[in-house]
């Protein structure tokens, strides 16, 4: 062989070609492996990556972050948004009641929620799932539950309609499984997510017995014209690809004393929201006087979302 004859020769033609081939192949393979990154729909800016956990942010840092986010929203959506961070109300304990006897399954809450919380329109993300279940004597035929019944099948007297959303458990399994503590329960009972801290492992989605958490598989898309400019840092600011999100009882509204969007849009008044620690509130009256139950009580999650079985 030539190689054996002249060991000190610099570089022969064959080795050069072979080397080039290997280099090219490596480059090609490497590039192919990395290509998803280059085509990634969203790469977080460095500041976002370096940002601290929400609970460790000082007010000044928050201010800077909010200003940065607002600027970014103006650039991407052309909307001057205001990001606020309402803190839990003192001694408030939010709860929700939903009267199944009255719900007609019109699903307006679902879309009001999408609008209010800037949920991705494409791919569609919805926090509320409305189950349609056949009435069976005095009970419910759970086997017949469907959540994607067509529009024309709403308002059927032979069915119950049961909207399911985040139950804001007092003992939330999703919080327990989060490996990075990106989700936690606030003092007023709302379970929130720091979208910047979430690593998108989806453990919480698996842990939630109510299937209430949603994952951004793709970059969430919201038309700028429809963006709700009244944003809360922990609730409806634009999310990123690869993070979890879920219902927060519209905390940017409820913590400032307003009703959640799903309640306001409900044409039947099946939805009731309020502060459990206020003895005169609607919610307190319902929980005191009506037949209420919670979903999957046996799991010990202690939801703050009550279902009422009354007219």
């Amino acid at each position: 062989m030539e190689k054996g004859q002249k060991p000190d020769r610099k570089l022969n033609r064959r080795d050069f070609i072979a080397g080039m081939a290997v280099t090219l192949a490596a480059a090609g393979a490497g590039a192919a492996a990395l290509s998803p990154l280059i085509r990634a729909e969203e790469i977080p800016p460095l500041e976002d990556v370096l940002q601290k956990h929400y609970q460790r942010l000082t007010p000044e840092e928050k201010k800077a972050i909010f200003a940065r986010l607002e600027k970014r929203i103006l650039a991407t959506h052309g909307v001057q948004a205001t990001i606020r961070d309402p803190q839990p109300l003192e001694n408030a304990h939010f709860a929700y009641a939903l009267n199944i006897g009255r719900c007609i399954g019109c699903r307006k809450c679902v879309y009001a929620c999408m609008k209010e919380n800037n949920l991705s329109r494409d791919p569609q993300i919805q926090y509320i799932r409305v189950l349609k279940m056949k009435k069976q004597g005095h009970g419910i035929d759970l086997e017949s539950a469907v959540h994607d019944y067509p529009q024309e099948e709403a308002g059927d007297k032979n069915y119950y309609y049961m909207p399911v959303q985040c139950q804001q458990c007092e003992n939330p399994p999703c919080v327990k499984v989060c490996p990075v503590k990106a989700t936690w329960r606030e003092e007023d009972g709302i379970v929130v997510i720091d979208y910047n801290w979430c690593i998108g492992c989806r453990y919480c989605q698996a842990a939630c017995p109510y299937h209430a958490r949603r994952f951004n598989f793709a970059k969430p898309r919201v038309p700028g014209a429809e963006l709700n400019p009244n944003m809360g840092y922990l609730s409806n600011r634009p999310r990123f690809m690869g993070v979890m999100e879920k219902c927060t009882f519209c905390l940017h509204r409820t913590r400032t004393g307003r009703y959640p969007a799903c309640l306001e849009v409900c044409p039947t008044g099946a939805r009731k929201f309020g502060d459990m620690s206020d003895p005169d509130s609607e919610i307190r009256r319902i929980v005191d006087k009506e037949r209420v139950y919670v979903l999957k009580q046996d799991l010990g999650t202690v939801p703050r979302f009550y279902y009422v079985f009354a007219k």
């Binding site: 399954g105 019109c106 919805q126 067509p150 529009q151 308002g155 598989f217």
Partner: peptide, 16 residues
């Protein structure tokens, strides 16, 4: 008797 007939379409679930 309560009548309300403005219903909305079902969700388009992601393929996953």
């Amino acid at each position: 008797a309560f009548k309300f007939e403005k219903y909305t379409p079902p969700p388009v679930w992601p393929e996953q």
